[in-house]
Every structure is written in C-alpha cells, then in structure tokens.
Nucleic acid binder design. Structure first.
Length: 832
RNA sequence: GCGGGCGUGGUGAAAUUGGUAAACACGCUGGCUUUAGGUGCCAGUGCUCGAAAGAGCUUGGGGGUUCAAGUCCCUCCGCCCGCACCA
C-alpha cells in the first residue's frame, strides 16, 4: 500500500481501537485491572464549560495535557486522565431567555459536540469516569458538600451588598460585571442588600497563604495573584471614641501604621457606615451629610473607583479622641473610605499618607509631621510631606527620637494595656458569595420553615432536583421562585409547611471538587470513597488557562482544605503542580465572534487531521506563552508529519526489521547518534517544564537527517537498520503530540504498539562523539572552527589552534597575554 | 502607585544556564521534478561593505564585571498581565 499521508484513515482506525479496547481506562486500587506495581500520576486539564463547539483554547489545553499524560504513561506511571463538563452556568441560561430553548437541551447538545471532538482529537481520556456537573448524580454531592460546610458553620446566610443589574432585574456574578457594567446589557451595576449564602473562605486566608509552601511547582505569577487577592496586611486595630454629649461611641479603625498615630489630625467614615445616621441626626450637618451619602450611593463602583478622582467629603460636626494623646480631631464622611475594607473608618494621617494629605489640602486641615524624612518625588509640600518612609519619630511624646519601626510594637503593646487597641490582621479577601438568583445551577438544599427557620435538607432526601420550568426570565429573584409546586414543601424537622430556598449555587462550587469525583464517579453511596481519593490525590499535573488563576484555583484550594478538616480527604492542597497555558490569538487579538477572528479546531482537524492541529499548537512556541495562530504554521507542521509518513512508507519497503550492529560506523552511526540525541533532547524538554516546541523541533531535525542520509544507507544492512531505527524513533517521540501517526508508523516498522512501549532511553555511548568542533577565538572573536579529537589534552588543543592559518593571521607579531582553554569546547587566545 | 512577566532576524522562536547568537519552522530567492499550477526534493537566506576570499557590525538604549555577556550587575526606555482611594 502506498499513497500520500491520509490522516482521516489513520486517525479513525486508532480512535476505534482505543475506544474498543478502552486503552486509557485505569482502575482504582482493589478493583480488577488495577496495576499496583506502578506509581500513580494524576494528569488533569481544567474541565470545559460546554457552550457551542470547542475552540482553539480547548485544543491547546487538551493537546498539552495529553502529551503529558502519554509521556508519563510511557515513563512507567499509572496515569489517570479523566474528562467532564462544567455544565451549569449563565451562558446557557441567557441563551434560554433569548431563544426559549431549555438550558439542558443546549448544554447537552454542546456536551455531545465536545465528546465527539475529544474523540476526533484522539485525546487519551478514561471515559469510564466522565461526569457532567448538571446531572443529579453529580449535583447531589455538590449539595451534600454544601450541607457539610453548613453543619460546620462554614456556610452561612446573611444580608450583604451585591451587584445588581436594574435592567435585567437580577443579581450578577462578579465575573458578569465588566468595568462596573452588566456584561449582557451594558447597564451600570448598582449595589443592593440581599440575603445571601456565603462560604467562610476568610477563615482559611492564612492557610491559603501558608500552604503555597506545600505546592511543588506553580507559576510564580499565579501565586502572586492569589497572594494579592487575599491581600493580607498586618497592623493594629485602634479605638477612637466619640464622647460628645448625646453620643458615646467607640470607632475602631484598622491601620498598618500605628507608628503614625500621633499624626492623626482628622477621622473619616465611609458613606455606608452604619453609625453615620446616629451621629448627625438632628444636627446642623444632617442635611449636607444625607445629601452627600445619597449622591455617593447613586454613583457606580466604576465612577467611585476612578483614577485621579478628586477627594470629596462632608464634615460631621463631631469629633473623636485620639487615644495616644487625647487630642480631639474632627470627623468627616468621605467616599475614599470603603465600608468593605477594615472597619469602614480610618484615622487620617495627612503627614504620612498621600490620600489623607490630598483630603487635608482640600479641606484646609492641619498636616502634622511625626516621622523625620522627606519624599522629594511625592510632590507634596515644602517640608517633604506626605512622607511614607521610615525615620526617627517626632511630635510623638515619649516616642520622640525612636526609630518608627522599633517603636511600632511598643505602641501596639501600650494601646493594648490601655484597652484602646491591639495587633490585628486584615484581609482583602471576602467570604465567597455562593448564592445566585438563577435557574441553571445546583439548588441550595435548604428549606425555610415558619417554626424551625432555615433547615438543611437531610442527606437521604438529596438531590434536591432542579425542576423543569418554562419561563427563564429573571424577575428579581430566581426563576425557580415561580415553580410553586416545587417551592412548597414539608419541613424535614417538624413536618409543617415550608418553602425551598430558590437560589442556586455559584457554578464555581461545582468546579471546586470535580477532580475528586472523577476518582469515584459512579459511586451512588458517597461523593467518593476515601481510599480512592487517598490513592490518586493530589493532582500531579494540572493544566489550564491563567484566567482561572484566582477564582477557580483558590476556591478549589479552599474546599480541599475544608473537606480535609471534615475528615473526607487526606490532602491539604489539590494541585501539586500547575501549568498555566498561554492564550492563542489571531491577528494579534483575542479571538471573539464579534471580531470574526475565531479559529475553529474542527475545521483544521477536518482539513489536516487531528495530529497536525495538536502538534501545531504545541509547536507554536513555549506553551505557557500565548501565540498568534498562523495558517502557514499549520501547513508547516502538516508538511513535517507528511514527510515522516513518506519516510515510513519508503523505509517499510526498502528495509527489513532488525537492530543495527554494534560495529556501526560512518553516516549510519551518525544517524543512529542523531536519533539518540533526539531522544535525549526531547526527554529533557518534557522534564524541564514542557518545552514542547523544542521537543518537536528535535524530531524534525531527526527526520531531516534521515532524509539527507537515507539514500546512501539503504544498500548496507547496518545503514538500513539505522534508517529504520531513526524513523521508528521519530514516531515514538512524536507520539505524545501526534498519537495516531506516531502509533501507525511505529507499528508498521516495529510491529508493536508504541503506547505499550516504555519511553526510549538515549544510549550515553552514542551521545558523545569522538571529535568535537573546537571554537578558536582571538580576543574573544571567533576566528576558526577545527575538528579536534574529543579526548585531546589542553596542550594539544592549543597546538591545533595555533596551527590554524585563520588564527595566526590575527596573531601576527602581537604579544600573547593569555590563553584560555575550555576542554572539548574552545580556545581563546588573548593578544595585545 | 504596588506586584509579576517580557524585549533576539521579515515572522513564530532557539541558545546545553557565562563559551559558535539566530537551532527548528514560517516567509522569501534560486534549482530540479512535473504537460502546467500546486505538491515534492535540493540549495541559499541576520545586517553592512565586497565579484569573491574576507572584514566589520548585531540580542530595546547606555554603562560595568569578565579572557569571554542574549545570559551576571547598575541605569534608562518600551510593551504585556494582575491588583488598586485596601488605610
């Protein structure tokens, strides 16, 4: 049989074999088919959100993950490599509102398309563990996890301000708010107080920070992003007291600079501060304050957070007492103080904080220096204030003359002894708001009973199934609220009439534990068998886009810790190693339907085959970096795979199976050596952070050399064997990227299935050659290259170098100052 | 402003971690094959000067360390990403 490279035939052939033989399925310990002799490796790509068809981002993610899975298998690991769908979510629901098609129908159609394409791409998935988060078999356990957290007080309900879109009359998820506007209709988002369910992720803030140390290898920038997001700051809580005639209130503030307490000259409350009303009721300031608060309330988050926004505020006509010196300082309300951070109140130190300084300038408030030093660049006043740096303290009573850093702890201690403060830690991280007034999600398994209040649905009544509805339009509460038959229920505690919670869970809850469910996905008695989780966790290699650097990865880390605390898991961190792939662009821009610059993987798979598409996305550049899609690049990779294919056909015809003899020499040995070099190179590239682009280029070099040398080698048995070996090796090394072609070529030449063969090992004897190219430099400039014996002594190398005419031409009659010899590499003659 | 990343040919990129800068691929040029186009195969291709041999220059700019710097140090410039009135 002969003919051009026909990926369609090859690919469907092997896909059928893998499906029929269930090649990539692995069993849990204790089950038949489990191979206990091998170490385990859990290779996982982030599960896709099934919407429409897969795009190139998916292709890249799964091509990268699959290459790793194949490599690990052949390195002797028992690899678990499952797949599923994050199938609850807003786009399907929005589509339902627009078209009337049920989210289930649209989602399941999309899942079918993902399933088909994953098979067409030849991804080595253990399909026996497949899951979809929208199925009752899955979300039953999402609800169970919710209740587990609820029982431990880690899930709670409270009134909180949320992002509300007035036009759509619904709450929006954070990720649905883009620059303060509703992603869908563009309306400015407003804040609204609603009863919401939260997970107490803030309880885990310190552990989420500390356990970065337990991770094996995560990209530094992802860790940094999470660290910023958690935003831990150390400081002190200090209590300022307002003790005017009719009010007597304590106002705690958080500060990272208790050393500047003596410099506080005014005090500011956030416009949302709950005590504001009490402070001004019936005073001359009342009207102005109320007007200001209303004005701020009408502004969007976008306007309020705008850069270079001028400071605004209104005096309250009241004052608080600075605990360190008894000074009375005036109170203000101003929108630069945020209710959601710290205590919603600050002590203002204009001498050492630029924001307070700006405010002081605008309102003519005193600026007091309490630390020596000046900041020339800050553009402050003539004395160099505001000064944010360190220095000796002044105007600070008994602390004068002390360095601010050393006095810091003492001031905090003194505050504590006076009962006016203590050391304190603040986080930017807020509790995770998990309720959504949405239909297409897992119902929160709580019922409200007039007698018993909020009652958890007992485990045996799970799942609380999502009812089918007709009208998906949001009306200010979940569309579920209109499903009266579903909402009306019985109280599990007293049997009285009760109503179901109509909010559903954030889909990030679903995707925070799916990697555990894969390990025991068919279990009907429990979310997972503890032993199965203990065997496979943590995920050894997680792969996904950077866009999940914060939310998904942090939620999953949190839930893992919480579940470990509850005794369900034995690991503290879910993902030991994380690989964040870069985004593929087209014409330098992010792909989007509106720009019309999307690339459909299916189209390329159809035209060039899956092997070409997969190999191309791995060859574009380092996979952690993004890259611009290039049709010419795809063709280049296709050309290379075709070359390998034609080489295989020729080799099959012109050589017979057999190993090259030990006495192999000349260009046969050169080709053999090149094959071993390629083995070594690509193995190292796999191990050194998945440098697939260079691993693939090594195979290209091998194939190029085989083409260059083959015609001179077929005549001789060793030569023919070398060509056959080189071709089979190229197939073996390209297999993780182009599994169909790699498998086909290897089987034709070796009669074996390449995925059942161990990853090849380079023969060290063939990695060294007996001659080296000696670089000869004069004054560091390259003057000649000489073939020299690899074993030559330093003296001999010098001799050879000096013998070169090209070198001596540059030496002339100059004085030789120094001679550097790097054995096996170079000689540098320094002359004057 | 804070934190992180990056800057190399016409393009995507590589460089064994201080020792041949530009592997591999795209593109381009030429040759061969082909009835022709495409495909395929072979060769060339950093820049400047030169017919050539060869010489000089070159990793964002400037400076430094070193026999030797894309790689290390200082400094400036530019781009990308994340967070941001966070007290």
């Amino acid at each position: 049989m002969s003919g051009g490279y026909d990926p369609k035939t090859i690919e469907s052939k092997w896909q059928r074999v893998w499906a029929e033989e269930k090649t990539w399925e692995v069993a849990n310990p204790g089950q038949p088919g489990c191979d206990d002799s091998k170490p385990k490796s859990y290779v996982l790509e982030m599960l896709p959100y099934p919407s429409g068809e897969p795009h190139v981002g998916h292709l890249k993610c799964y091509a990268v993950g699959d290459a790793i899975a194949h490599f690990r298998r052949r390195q002797g690991f028992e690899v678990i490599h499952p797949m599923g769908y994050d199938s609850f979510g807003l786009p399907a629901e929005n589509n339902a509102i627009k078209t009337g098609e049920s989210p289930r129908a649209a989602t399941e159609r999309s899942i079918a398309s993902f399933q088909r394409q994953f098979r067409e791409w030849g991804i080595s998935i253990d399909w026996s563990r497949e899951l979809a988060t929208h199925t009752p078999e899955y979300y039953r356990w999402t609800q169970w996890i919710f209740l587990q957290l609820y029982e431990r007080g880690l899930a709670y309900r409270t009134e909180a301000p949320v992002q509300w879109c007035p036009k759509d009359a619904t709450v929006l998820a954070n990720e649905q708010v883009v620059d303060g506007r509703c992603e869908r209709c563009g309306t400015e988002v407003v804040r609204k107080n609603l009863e919401q369910w939260f997970f107490k992720i803030t309880d885990y803030a310190d552990r989420l920070l500390a356990d970065f140390d337990r991770l094996e290898s995560w990209p530094e920038h992802v860790i940094t992003m999470q660290r910023n997001w958690i935003g831990r700051s150390e400081g002190a809580q200090v209590v300022f007291r307002c003790q005017e005639s009719e009010v007597d209130l304590d106002f705690p503030v958080f500060t990272t600079r208790p050393d500047t307490l003596f410099g506080a000259t005014f005090f500011v409350l956030a416009p949302e501060h709950p005590e504001l009303e009490r402070l001004v009721a019936g005073t001359p300031a009342e009207e102005a304050v109320r007007e200001y608060v209303n004005r701020v309330g009408r502004e969007s988050a976008e306007e309020r957070g705008a850069e270079d926004r001028e400071k605004t505020g209104v005096p309250l006509g009241r004052s608080v007492v600075n605990p360190v010196n008894g000074e009375e300082i005036p109170m203000f309300v101003a929108d630069y103080v945020l209710m959601e951070y710290g205590t919603g109140a600050i002590m203002a130190v204009p001498g050492h904080d630029s924001r307070d300084y700006e405010f002081a300038q605008k309102f003519g408030l005193p600026v007091k220096r309490v630390i020596e030093g000046s900041d020339e660049e800050a553009g402050g006043n003539a004395e160099g204030l505001p000064y944010p740096g360190d220095g000796p303290m002044v105007n600070s009573g008994r602390f004068d003359g002390r360095g601010n850093r050393e006095a810091y702890a003492e001031i905090v201690e003194w505050l504590k002894s006076e009962g006016r403060g203590e050391a304190s830690v603040n986080y930017r991280l807020r509790d995770w708001l998990v309720s959504r007034q949405r239909y297409w999600g897992a119902p929160i398994p709580i019922v409200y009973c007039e007698q018993c209040g909020a009652v958890p649905v007992p485990d045996e009544q799970l799942p609380v199934e999502l009812p089918e509805i007709e009208d998906y339009a949001p009306r200010g509460k979940s569309p579920l609220a209109a499903a009266e038959d579903w909402v009306a229920t019985e109280c599990p505690k007293c049997g009285g009439s009760a109503r179901r919670e109509t909010d559903t869970m954030d889909t990030f809850v679903d995707s925070s534990w799916y990697f555990i469910r894969y390990l025991d996905s068919k279990n009907r008695e429990a979310a997972w068998e503890r032993s199965a989780a203990a065997h496979w966790l943590p995920v050894d290699q997680y792969i996904g886009g950077v866009e999940h650097a914060i939310l998904h990865l942090m939620y999953a880390r949190f839930l893992t810790k919480a579940l470990a605390d509850l005794g369900h898991l034995e690991v503290q961190e879910p993902f030991a190693n994380l690989f964040a792939q870069g985004m593929i662009t087209r014409d330098g821009a992010k792909m989007s339907k509106s720009k019309g610059n999307t690339v459909s993987p299916g189209e390329y798979v159809e035209r060039y085959g899956a092997d070409t598409a997969r190999t191309y996305v791995c060859f574009m550049g380092p996979p952690e970096r993004g890259g611009d899609w290039s049709d010419e690049g795809v063709e280049g990779v296709n050309r290379f795979l075709s070359r390998l294919w034609r080489l295989c056909e020729e080799v099959e015809e012109r050589t017979i199976a057999g190993e090259p003899g030990a006495a192999i020499a000349g260009s046969a040995r050169d080709l053999l050596a090149k094959a071993h070099w390629a083995i070594d190179k690509s193995t190292r590239d796999f191990q050194r952070g998945f440098q697939f682009n260079t691993a693939i280029s090594a195979v290209m070099e091998l194939v190029n050399d085989a083409y260059r040398l083959k015609d001179g080698l077929y005549g001789d048995p060793d030569g023919a064997a070398a060509v056959r070996f080189a071709t089979a090796t190229a197939a073996s090394l390209i297999f993780p990227f182009a599994p169909h072609l790699g498998g086909e070529v290897f089987e034709r030449l070796r009669g074996e299935r390449v995925w059942e063969q161990p990853w090849p090992e380079a023969d060290p004897a063939l990695l060294v050659s007996d001659t080296v190219t000696l670089i000869v430099q004069v004054n560091g400039k390259l003057r000649d290259r000489i073939e020299a014996p690899a074993e030559a002594s330093q003296e001999r190398l010098l001799e050879l170098a000096r013998a070169s005419e090209k070198v001596s031409a540059h030496l002339d009659d100059k004085e030789v100052v120094k001679e550097i010899v790097v054995p096996g590499k170079l000689v540098n003659v320094v002359v004057r």
